[in-house]
Amino acid sequence: MGSEFVPLSLPPLLIGAFAAVACALPGNFLLLRRQALIGDAISHVALPGIVVAFLITGAISTWPMMIGAAGAAVISVVLIEVIRRLGRIEPGAAMGVVFTAMFAGGVLLLEQTDTSSVHLDVEHALYGNLESLIWLDATGWGSLLDWDALRHLPPELPRIAVTLLGVVLFLWLFWRPLAISTFDEGFARTLGLRTTALGLALVVVAAIAAVAAFDAVGSIIVIAMFICPPAAARMMTNRLGVQVAWSVAFALLSAVLGYVLAGYGPLWIGMYDAVSAAGMIATVSGVILALTAVFGPCRHRAGAPAGV
């Protein structure tokens, strides 16, 4: 069992779970601040960033591409703000203009350049390739203690783990100011908190998480994990800390269950090929959200548990 599970399933499972949690954590605050669609925008604009990085460096290498994607994310956030202010347009529409235009530019660049020699296409950016992140050097559970084998882990795994750590650290350090400024921005300002800088920092952290996750698992998971687990957690409780805990649990559940269903589900119903793990994880998170929307104790707007 271990000899097959560790090399083929453990790394994608871990990467999926880490990516899900790294996106769900900042997603909690974005959801409460009515900025839930930032994740959607970021994951769209990552494409032109990656393509431009590829054009400049001429190779598929991770760091330039991550920098390109992060740069594009920051540019898009600035552009949205500029268009919103200059044109006096509502934020949703400004966002729609920026991310669609940038995504279109990315697709056009991609079609215009010769990427036949490398693995870079739109579908890949959307779906990710979670299933292909395998660890060929592992022979069994013992490999987890074997330094030589560990060095050949898929590089996405340590990267997403570090990102997750960074996100957790950010939330842990700024928990109180973030909570205060999320619920009552005016009060936070009277306390002397720099709410604008804090809001921007949150968006930047979300962008970093999105780009790291995007690199490993594609943009569907990113968008789904920014919104679905926090939204489902919001139906379960009125307390922020509890909500974050629920969202982490839901994100983990979606990642694990989604991966297992995608890999083994088709076999159970008599089909031979696995389906997209990224899509399945998003689907499972949606099912969880649907269940909590129907049965969650705090699903109603007033905030009181049903029946009280």
Partner: peptide, 16 residues
């Protein structure tokens, strides 16, 4: 966002 990502994800599953 929820509808967008979940429906799209499910669509991708069906595409595979």
């Amino acid at each position: 966002g929820a509808v967008l990502s979940v429906f799209f994800g499910f669509g991708v599953v069906l595409m595979t």
